[in-house]
Amino acid sequence: MNDATGTRDGLDDATRREFLKRLAVAGAAASFGAIGLILPESAGALATSDYDWTRHRWVYLIDTRKCIGCGACVRACRVENDVPDGMYRTWVERYHIPAGGEAAVDSPDGGAGGFLPVAGAAEPGKAFFVPKICNHCEQTPCTQVCPVGASYSTRDGVVLVDAERCIGCGYCVQACPYGSRYLDPRTHTAEKCTWCYHRLVKGRSTACVGICPTAARMIGDRENPDDPINEILATQRILVLQPELLTKPQCFYLGLDMEVR
């Protein structure tokens, strides 16, 4: 078709070759750019000088109805944050609830490799995926129990661990009702989801949100009135996990089922 239009518009061969060459370069650049999206940011380089943490308030939103269980988020998180094998900063759960039956839940390798079909999947009932991540609770039990203050909440609403202060007692691991924390076997300190804070402060999205093919995950800024997340939170029926514990999770869910905790 290029050929046809080219001759019809009267472009000479040289112009056409130049155009194709540019197209190739642009294509290569674009694919590099895409790879760049999931390449790890240097975790060492933190806040840029123009980032003001008093002017942001991060919240997370998961639409379980959109999740297809591909596990790309778990893989992206692993690469971005160098998560050790057997530990998870985010994972995806699969629920299969046959009509009138017991819920079957699984999350093989945190859902990193996607999910194989289960027996009885064709029976009537419901099935869905639920991505999980640290809830970055406002009243978080994990930072409350840290004896040395190594675990803390930032002004912009992110719960972090200072690996240079953590004594590795594991109290926060026990205190988290959501199983979001683990002791890193390499550093012997507590680790958890940071909402890719090193990316947030540079104006970028988290690795899991960036990679999600169905936009089941969103991160947004409550302080920014134009952020689309605010309209969803204001107009949709939202839920949090284990609300009875009054930890005030800042990770909200759309389409959550009562079986999920």
Binding site: V148, G149, R165, I167
Partner: peptide, 26 residues
């Protein structure tokens, strides 16, 4: 037993030096 359990026993003294008063462990 506590010191042997800690991932970083060398920082254990921080429980006394820089305690987080919200923590029961402090």
């Amino acid at each position: 037993p506590l010191l042997n359990h800690l991932g970083h026993p060398e920082r254990g003294i921080n429980i006394i030096v820089t305690p987080n008063f919200n923590s029961a462990m402090a």
